[in-house]
Design a protein around this nucleic acid. Structure first.
Length: 465
RNA sequence: GGCGCCAUAGCCAAGUGGUAAGGCAGCGGACUGCAAAUCCGCGAUUCUCCGGUUCAAAUCCGGAUGGCGCCUCCA
């Protein structure tokens, strides 16, 4: 597999340090609110990368953190008259709700920053010992100039970074580029004891500490949004490599931005959509499908039109699968006929195309086109009395590929099935009696219940919209 | 000022040297009580523009125009 590595800005063959186990760290949410559709992109992308690596036979250890202590959380908690801990717990729960809806599997470890404070302190002490950090009035800062490779991920000469850095009027920091590892507690803020007095960890250090604790000094893939390249990931490299003395992450993979109506998402423009709200409008599955319909590194545009198009496209794949499931117990026994054998070969060709696409830097857009081709072949081949053997193997292959992308979700038991089946039977009776007014009325009623009904040569077929 | 990205049919979107995937929308046909779904057929002589390299370029090089991002919290 090839992956684009931002360290050298090239597609590289992916070779994990340990051929048996791929170690991935992906930056997770700061839990002070529902996460928005922009946040959802990396979650979906790296979930898909993880699924694909597993599909290709790797074992994967996947770590995604929760930032559960920071300025925004403290501020929001104060506004709501609650504590940081309660607020972050609440939005961690909400994260899991949306993540599950989006088909994002739970990470192997979901560490919280507040759970690794001892490891963070230990790492900061190491950095101080090695001359990479210094304490200053209860804070601790990273001495950026002590790490000569600073800027190697963002490809910025350190001089340019310095000229762009905000000049700090105070003399707390030695250099404007220095960033906080430990922040002294202000009155009323949550605080942990440390050698430098009560305080809390800076944002960047938590990821370095968690990656080290759960994945070791060198990880294979570090993921996140492009906006984290600088300063967050640059700082992680400085911290981890400064403290551990070894390479931190071998492949740095970043997803592109998500724009709203061709504009950058921003609260001042009011073009902000949470996944919770977006899912109500289009469905979680549409959001995931939409994200995977373009290459992960390109910018994508979230709009009413693009989401509606994604929903319609996904519909085609859902119909294909529903048709196969419907035919499962209605198809004839016996082995594949000659024509079906030929189609199966073409389906295998689609699978090969799918793998080629995914191997090429996770080209999910191209991979999806292979699935559409597969759908066309399956639809055409099952128009009249396919064999059960064909339907079964076709469905298995279809599920295999859509499952890697996680785009069709899992079958859910329908609690209203009995009632729906009764209505459909009633409608069939009306149709048989050529009482079309009644049969159409029943179909309208089912439509209102969110049931899509189709008449087929094998009888009526229904599924949830 | 520094570092980058993008420009492909009405819309979305693959394609990094060999003669333009796929999807949505639309049109025609088949099927259907009607519908839905599905199948078949139809759309870029051409990839923003201008030069160049090459037997050959959407793909490489130079330039122009337009759009965007990072360099500050941010997925």
């Amino acid at each position: 597999m090839k992956l684009y590595n931002d360290l050298n800005r090239k597609k590289e063959d992916f070779v994990p340090v340990d051929p048996e186990l791929v170690r991935i760290y992906s930056c997770g949410p700061t839990v002070y609110d529902f996460f928005h559709v922009g946040n959802a992109r990396p979650f979906i992308i790296f979930d898909t990368l993880r699924r694909y690596l597993i599909y290709r036979g790797y074992k994967v250890k996947f770590v995604q953190n929760f930032t559960d202590i920071d300025d925004k959380i403290i501020r929001r908690a104060n506004e709501e008259g609650t504590t940081s801990a309660e607020l972050s717990e609440r939005f961690i729960k909400e994260y899991y709700t949306d993540a599950k809806g989006l088909g994002i599997h739970k990470a192997d470890v979901h560490p919280k920053a507040t759970e690794v404070v001892p490891e963070i302190i230990e790492m900061i002490e190491t950095l101080i010992e090695k001359g990479h950090a210094y304490a200053s009035v209860g804070d601790v800062y990273y001495r950026t100039l002590s790490f000569p490779e600073y800027g190697k991920l963002s490809h910025q000469p350190i001089d340019d970074l310095m000229s762009g850095a905000r000049v700090d009027v105070s003399e707390i920091k030695e250099n404007p580029l220095d960033f906080a590892l430990w922040k002294a507690a202000k009155p009323g803020e949550p605080a942990w004891e440390s050698p430098w007095g009560p305080g809390r960890p800076g944002w960047h250090i938590e990821c370095s500490a968690m990656a080290k604790k759960f994945l070791g000094d060198t990880i294979d893939i570090h993921g996140g949004g492009q906006d984290l390249i600088f300063p967050h990931h640059e700082n992680e490299i400085a911290q981890s490599e400064g403290a551990n003395g070894s390479e931190f992450a071998r492949y740095w993979v970043h997803n592109g931005y998500l724009n709203i109506d061709n504009q950058k998402m921003s609260k001042s423009l009011g073009n902000f959509f949470t996944v919770r709200d977006a899912s109500a409008a289009y469905g979680y599955d549409t959001i995931r499908f939409f994200m995977l319909s373009s290459h992960y590194r390109s910018q994508i545009n979230y709009s009413r039109e693009t989401l509606s198009q994604a929903k319609a496209g996904l519909e085609r794949l859902k119909n294909c699968r529903a048709n196969l499931v419907f035919l499962l117990d209605k198809s004839g026994e016996g082995g594949l006929c000659e024509n079906e054998k030929a189609v199966m070969e073409k389906l295998e060709g689609c699978k090969a195309d799918f793998i080629d696409a995914m191997d090429d830097d996770l080209n999910t857009a191209d991979a999806i086109s292979a699935i559409f081709e597969m759908a066309r072949l399956l639809n055409a081949a099952t128009m009249e009395s396919p064999t059960k053997a064909f339907v079964e193997s076709g469905l298995a292959l279809f599920d295999e590929l859509t499952g890697v992308l996680g785009i069709l979700g899992e079958d859910a038991e329908d609690e209203d099935a009995a009632e729906i089946e009764a209505l459909i039977a009633e409608r069939q009776a009306a149709r048989k009696a050529k009482d079309f007014a009644k049969s159409d009325a029943i179909r309208d009623k089912l439509t209102a219940m969110g049931i899509l009904l189709e008449d087929t040569p094998q009888g009526p077929k229904w599924r949830r919209a």
